[in-house]
Design a protein around this nucleic acid. Structure first.
Lengths: 323, 323
DNA sequence: GTTCTTGACGAAATCGATTTCTTGGACTTC
DNA sequence: GAAGTCCAAGAAATCGATTTCGTCAAGAAC
């Protein structure tokens, strides 16, 4: 490993001078030339570990997400990365598999690694960011907000999205519009469902609303099973609002098994599948702007890293309905 | 920030003793009790930066991939992560967008960050890992091997996969089997195509083979366009081998636009789309075991990190044809 | 009773870069 | 020409953990 001292020796100057050249401080042209030549010959790269230890800051931001195989989160990661890279930061991606314990581990790592800040897509409402907050380490929650903590958040207007999804199905002539939402402990699931409930209550009355509501787990199998149950009802639905992309993939399977498919059976989904576009298959898509969520979260975090100490903000992005 | 010295002071011992407790060296039970109590009270987390600077090793492995939004690579990442986590390592994911310059930047970062090793899915044949090799930093290439460097690699038997994909289409009665493969500078693209060519030559003769071959870019749009071109031929194909999942999504679009679809039009694809399974849509899937690739690469890398200095190995995994 | 072993534990060096703090010399200024 | 001002650049402290080396005391061996 070639160090700053090797470069200094080769250039015939002190390590201090080398450091100055590297960091753009004032140095005589001659010294600068010598140092640059020596550094190039030795292919010197400053040791980031040492630099970080000394400087106490890191130019790395941690991004903690529940499921790296969900296209929604990869698009979000892409957004974070774009913005962070432009500001000279690297992004470290941490995948928790929706496991609160792994989430806690990664938060500890972020602290111990002296990362400049953390963007967290919380596994559930109980996510504990208190240690980060206590250390004044900037944190931004994305997609879901954190009930218990005073931290910045970026979310979408889930309730409005759920409402307009249901309304557009009713407008298209469907009469029994069901809802498959996520775990009741998850904020987005509650809000999307609430939007649906409001529209459904208006069109069909409160009567049998509960029959048409299913809580699942935001995963493919959960969606498949929930749709199968709905189809097995004495009075099955003719359409459904599904609260995320993975459950929609499962629901489509279940529909297929029953000989049904959109657009004959109405389906409106939160979030698309990029390479197998729901939109192309006669499904209404509530566009959750994942990349923009990531970009907004990164922007907010970078402001905090830059020293912004104002009160916690929440940024709400709009959903758009495609088709 | 609470340091080891704070803990030492609180426990009434030296920093040395605290370090020993943390790392499981021999200490009297009484000291150990005091230290643990103090550490708990102060919520002490050892500073990884300092630890790494001293220890020269990092318990972080870098995973550099060309496209984080491609499910193939996220599945691969999952495999790497599983294996690495089990061995106590964290994984840092770096996304290059197929840009050799970004790849080079991330390789520099891996060096400067003292990562324990790097797993690289090379953007193209020219990927330059010489600096890693020169520093004796362990590297494993995954998915594609590196022509110019003596490094470990994990790949699949692309040629055999391409061959069996084409054969199974001929066996199903298709007679004009085309091929849409990736960039000619990419090894996997060449091999998959070569497998197809061998089978196609046997069944239809060498005559018009080139008409039925298209090089695209491994992306959705490339697949769409290539398929559109094939369908516009005077004698269009009745089936095709497509060399990756994204191009297959595009090819499906083009087929759809022409009023065609599997299984009427024969399609065999390298790699599935997890949430919109090709398998369910009458498409033959050559299963590229992405997760297993990741696991194998991580295993190899961990062996190298552990000190294995043997000659470079290449592990070849088998593809399986589904359905 | 003296020497040797053993074990616990602290002082200090170390990792590599950055950041004071100094120093020494060139250049002004009166 | 003496005093003051500047500026480049080196010496040394610093970040926080680990590790080497040395010390001290208790117990063992003869």
């Amino acid at each position: 490993m070639v160090t700053i001292y090797d470069v200094a020796a080769r250039a015939g100057v002190s390590a201090t001078t080398v450091s100055r050249v590297l960091n753009g401080a004032k140095v005589s042209p001659e010294s600068e030339r010598l140092v640059r030549a020596a550094a190039a010959e030795l292919a010197f790269t400053p040791n980031r570990t040492a630099r970080r230890l000394r400087g106490q800051h890191s130019a790395v931001i941690g991004l903690i997400i529940p499921d790296i195989e969900n296209p929604f989160f990869t698009a979000l990661a892409r957004g974070v990365e774009n913005r962070a890279r432009a500001a000279g930061y690297s992004v470290v991606l941490c995948n928790t598999d929706e496991d609160p314990e792994r989430e806690a581990t990664y938060i500890d790592i972020a602290l111990a690694e002296h990362m400049a800040g953390v963007i967290l897509a919380p596994a559930d409402d109980a996510s504990d960011v208190s240690r980060l907050v206590a250390q004044r380490r900037p944190v931004v929650a994305v997609d879901r907000s954190l009930a218990h903590a005073e931290v910045d958040a970026v979310t979408v207007d889930n309730r409005a999205g759920g409402h307009s999804a249901a309304e557009s199905l009713f407008a298209a002539g469907f009469t029994r519009v069901a809802c498959i939402t996520g775990p009741s402990s998850v904020e987005t699931a509650q809000l999307r469902m609430a939007g649906w409930r409001q529209a459904a209550a208006r069109h069909t009355g409160d009567g049998h609303l509960e029959d048409l509501l299913r809580y699942a787990d935001y995963r493919v199998d959960g969606g498949r099973q929930a749709m199968a149950e709905l189809l097995a009802l004495p009075e099955p639905p003719d359409a459904a609002v599904v609260a995320n992309n993975l459950m929609a993939a499962g629901a489509l399977d279940a529909l297929h098994d029953a000989g049904l498919a959109p657009p004959g059976f109405g389906l409106a989904v939160f979030g698309d599948l990029p390479f197998a576009s729901f939109g192309r298959r006669g499904i209404r898509v509530v566009d959750v702007p994942a990349r923009e969520l990531g970009e907004a979260a990164a922007t907010l975090l970078l402001e905090r890293i830059g020293g912004d100490a104002g009160p916690a903000k929440t940024v709400v992005l709009r959903t758009r309905e495609q088709r």
